[in-house]
């Protein structure tokens, strides 16, 4: 027992600090950050429905500048997974120009080619999607970092390089694991998430798209992940965070948009948007043709 307290007298932050036993670090942002030009531009991106219960994305458009973190809020099951698959390259877009990174059309490339161009992504589901539970961490590193981190020579795996990089991820993201040879499935959810985020962030991608970056992660680890994202943005990467956690998005992001039934609202700077507005958007009241024009949020 560390402490007793009256929950009504505490904020969620102080409660969290008591639970993890240390003070939560604030996100440190470089002052006076300069947003660059539009780096990652998505225009009119649509995907096919894969199954009967799938939600496809329809006509999604947004742009992210270098150094900017775009948050995409929304109630679960409104096309977040389809959007991530479309951006990561698991599902190809109808047109190559639907996804453009630094002027390069990536819309019809697969995940491997997109990664080579600097577009990395982290899906929501860790076990079985972002990582293979029966693989070691080193092998999971090969899954997504093999090309950017030069782990494959003439079709043969350089396992030394994979181990070294994995060791770096484990150290820098404080992953609790015995080492690169530990099975991914043996890690706790939070540690696996730290590993996955570290694996992508340390590749220094130009664009990183992540879904639910801190889902099920303890508050200390969440703060570390947030800090790493902010630092990556500070180095000039464009970042897209898809999350159902509004607090997380409000703390982390520069701009925000809302996804509902596979459609994305226009993005707005975080300072200019209220929680009420976002709530309405999440409930499906946005600028689409079927909704009442009066409720549309001005762009």
């Amino acid at each position: 027992m560390v402490d007793t307290c009256d929950p009504t007298a505490e904020t969620s932050r102080t409660m969290a600090e008591k639970m993890i036993g240390t003070g939560l670090k604030d996100i440190v942002r470089g002052e006076g950050r300069q947003m660059g030009n539009a780096k990652f531009v998505v225009s009119n991106l649509s995907t096919r429905k894969l199954g009967h219960f799938d939600v496809a994305v329809e006509g999604v458009s947004f742009s992210v500048r270098a150094g900017e973190i775009l948050g995409i809020a929304g109630v679960a099951g409104n096309g977040q997974n389809a959007l991530l698959d479309a951006l990561s390259g698991e599902v190809e877009a109808h047109a190559a120009t639907a996804i453009v990174l630094d002027g390069q059309p990536l819309g019809q490339l697969g995940t491997t080619a997109r990664r080579k161009h600097g577009l990395c992504a982290v899906p929501e589901e860790r076990n079985g999607h972002a990582a293979v539970g029966d693989f070691s961490l080193a092998e999971n590193t090969i899954l997504t970092a093999r090309d950017r981190m030069s782990m494959v020579v003439m079709g043969l795996i350089n396992s030394g390089a994979a181990r070294t990089y994995t060791g770096k991820v484990i150290t820098e993201f404080a992953v609790k694991a015995l080492g690169p040879a530990s099975l991914a499935g043996s890690l706790s959810g939070g540690n696996l998430q730290k590993y996955i985020m570290g694996r992508e962030i340390l590749q220094r991608p130009s664009v990183l798209v992540v879904s639910q970056p801190t889902w099920g992660v303890d508050a200390g680890a969440a703060a570390a992940i947030h800090q790493a994202l902010v630092d990556l943005a500070a180095e000039g990467s464009a970042i897209v965070v898809i999350s159902q956690d509004l607090d997380e998005l409000l703390v982390l992001c520069d701009t925000m948009a809302v996804i509902n039934s596979g459609r994305l609202s226009a993005s707005k700077p975080v300072g200019t948007v209220t929680v009420d507005e976002i709530g309405l958007l999440m409930g499906g009241v946005h600028g689409d043709k079927t909704a009442e024009g009066a409720h549309a949020v001005p762009a």
Binding site: S88, G89, E90, G110, T111, T112, A113, R115, A121, P123, E125, G128, H129, A130, A131, V132, G133, D134, L143, T144
Partner: peptide, 9 residues
């Protein structure tokens, strides 16, 4: 993990 395979390219 077929899903992870697709993600891995």
């Amino acid at each position: 993990a077929p899903h992870a395979a697709r993600y891995g390219g």
